[in-house]
């Protein structure tokens, strides 16, 4: 049913999730949790995209959200590989301990 839930609700949900993701990246020190927060940000964007898509009644948003998912998957694989190769040289996942280069 069209207009059952107004667009604003979706946008508010998406914005809230995005802010949660941003705060997670800025406040948490565990690499994996930071990484998860970034994924929350991308998924928040997907909610917006689909909501806009439905509201505007064209398919660009759906295509875009597929692309975002693909890229997120590629990013996960590369990111986890980097974390693992880091872990082999220095067995920790705490961001504060990666301090050879001045942050």
């Amino acid at each position: 049913m069209d207009g059952f839930v107004p667009l604003n609700h979706y946008l508010l949900l998406s914005a809230t999730l995005f802010v949660i993701g941003v705060l997670g990246v800025l406040l948490r020190r565990n690499v994996i949790v930071v990484f998860m927060s970034i994924e929350i940000m991308l998924n928040a964007v997907n909610i917006s995209l689909i909501a806009f898509d439905h509201y505007l009644n064209n398919s660009d948003g759906q295509v875009f959200s597929f692309m975002v998912m693909c890229v997120a998957a590629a990013e996960v694989s590369v990111g986890l590989a980097i974390i693992i190769s880091m872990f082999r040289n220095k067995p920790t996942v705490n961001l504060d301990e990666f301090n050879i280069l001045k942050w």
């Binding site: 980097i82 990666f98 280069l101």
Partner: peptide, 19 residues
């Protein structure tokens, strides 16, 4: 370790910026 750290920082901030 330096190269690892560079990759990790670049990756985290780059993905953050992508968001």
């Amino acid at each position: 370790v330096k190269s690892n750290e560079a990759a990790l920082k670049y990756f985290l901030l780059g993905a953050f910026a992508t968001g």
